[in-house]
Write a protein that binds this DNA or RNA. Structure first.
Length: 433
RNA sequence: GUGGGAGUAGUUCAGUUGGUAGAGCCCUUGACUGUGGAUCAAGUGGUCGCCGGUUCGAGUCCGGUCUCCCACCCCA
């Protein structure tokens, strides 16, 4: 039985060329988070199933997660998302100075059929603010999101943040005659309004929520917070006032990508206030790049004092597809970063001298790749040229005997021979920025 | 879980009514025995996804199966 050369379906396996792109993206995202004062944390990949059962949504936990039983008979999940673990960390941390601004790059798992923008093992970016009930925290996490997109070079109009508010939506449904006990169902129906054809949705919605389908359809149609009918339906609503403040703060901060859409719901059950998502406005990537919202009851589940929270998850894969769609991954990222110098070794007789020479360069902070096979020099030069390295240092019998090294400029083609001691300083001086 | 498409060299692909498995790129070697990208020439490399059936003969036709891609569901 031969072993397969493929990993399990949808599992994360990145060759260096892919890893370089991911590192580039992750670096930009981390930098954006840091610019708002966020600190990085980490937590377990494997969690008890109960952690997610209470609030994440039963479909996500029971049907779309990797479930297993450990040797002690405990039901475990490879985490499908990070937020419940974060809530537990906060609840169990003892004294923390508020507000908490934390970010993470967790690997998460979902047992679904892979397709464009979706795999079974994926890395995302999580960014949360805890301990701030004020809408300012919701505003700030969206600012981080927008900053990420801007720092990666996304042009205005290529992406859009759409947002709504769960409490506003609830009040709206109530005003339109949908009783509170049907709201959870109404949200899922609302969520799909924009994702299905009119006929399909009509039939499906009638089946799910019967006579209230019309009200849900009407609710989903609001995309303007200044809509007079919306104002009439929600007279004196705190949720509406809060959402308007959210909108005004974002535009005051210079965010032009965000807009209200009552059809935004998001799938996670624990959201209690603002909810939002990030989309590609073009047709190439239909899948949400990011989803998030406010969860004011999650930390309290662990006993002790409750704490408000708001944050989002951003898929690095979906973000990457977006960037590739718009040509926003710089060419140099894909081709890789070459070393500063390649040390060519003529024969085994010079190898010890070459090792010592290369170590001296590395001690100065230079990046040095040394040939290990003593292939003929033509081969070594060819290998060096392929990496794009700017200099090749040749150590042959003549050089080794004289304590010198031949330095060839791979760009210009010229070559000089200098002492090994001077080479480090020379290479530092001629290092391309 | 449901539907559509695709599996042939490392890679991108071609392969005619069923008749000896091909090309470009890559790689290796040589022209150039201490110097790269260019050029020229040669070469390595394939259980044609897997199993079975039809046939004198299957990459090609039929059945099954696996995998990947895309879409639905849901979601990052």
């Amino acid at each position: 039985m031969e072993l397969s050369t493929k990993p399990l379906a949808g599992m994360r396996q990145l060759y260096p060329a892919d890893m370089r792109v991911e590192e580039y993206i992750e670096g930009k995202v981390r930098e954006a988070g840091r610019s708002y004062g966020f600190e990085e944390y980490d937590c377990p990949t494997l969690e008890p199933m109960e952690l997610f059962l209470a609030k994440s949504g039963s479909e996500l936990v029971l049907e779309q997660s990797y479930r297993l039983t450990d040797r002690g008979g405990r039901e475990l999940l490879l985490r499908p998302e990070l937020t419940p673990s974060l809530a537990r960390m906060i609840a169990g941390a003892g004294e923390l100075h508020l507000p908490i601004r934390w970010m993470a790059f967790p690997i998460c798992f979902r047992y679904e059929r892979p397709q464009r923008g979706r795999v079974r093992e994926f890395k995302q970016f999580n960014c949360d603010i805890l301990g701030v009930p004020d809408i300012a925290a919701d505003v700030e996490v969206v600012l981080v999101l927008d900053r990420i997109m801007k720092s990666l070079g996304a042009a205005p109009g290529t992406y859009a943040v759409r947002y709504s508010n769960r409490r506003l939506a609830s009040e709206l449904l109530l005003a339109l005659g949908v009783p509170a006990e049907l709201h959870q169902t109404a949200f899922t129906v609302l969520d799909r309004k924009s994702k299905m054809s009119q006929e399909d949705w009509d039939a499906w919605a009638a089946d799910r929520i019967g006579p209230h389908a019309g009200a849900v359809a009407e609710a989903s149609g609001f995309t303007d917070l200044d809509d007079l009918r919306l104002g009439n339906l929600l007279k004196g609503s705190g949720a509406l006032a809060e959402t308007v403040e959210f909108k005004d703060s974002l535009s005051a901060a210079g965010v032009t990508s965000a807009s209200f859409d009552a059809g935004v719901v998001r799938g996670l059950d624990y959201y209690t206030g603002m909810v939002f998502e990030l989309l590609d406005t073009g047709g190439e990537n239909r899948r949400a790049i990011c989803g998030g919202g406010r969860y004011d009851n999650l930390v309290g589940l662990f006993g002790g004092r409750p704490m408000t929270g708001v944050g989002f998850g951003l898929g690095l894969l979906t973000l990457r597809l977006f960037l590739e769609t718009y040509g926003l991954v710089p060419a140099g990222v894909a081709s890789g970063t070459p070393s500063d110098v390649f040390v060519a070794v003529f024969s085994k007789a010079e190898r010890e001298a070459a090792f010592a020479f290369a170590e001296g360069l590395r001690a100065r902070g230079l990046r040095v790749e040394m040939d290990l096979d003593c292939r003929n020099l033509g081969r070594q030069f060819k290998a060096a040229a392929r990496t794009g390295v700017p200099w090749v240092a040749v150590i042959g019998p003549e050089e080794a005997a004289a304590g010198r090294v031949a330095l060839k400029d791979m760009g210009a083609g010229g070559q000089t021979t200098i002492s090994m001691e001077e080479a480090g300083e020379f290479l530092e001086r001629h290092r391309p920025s």
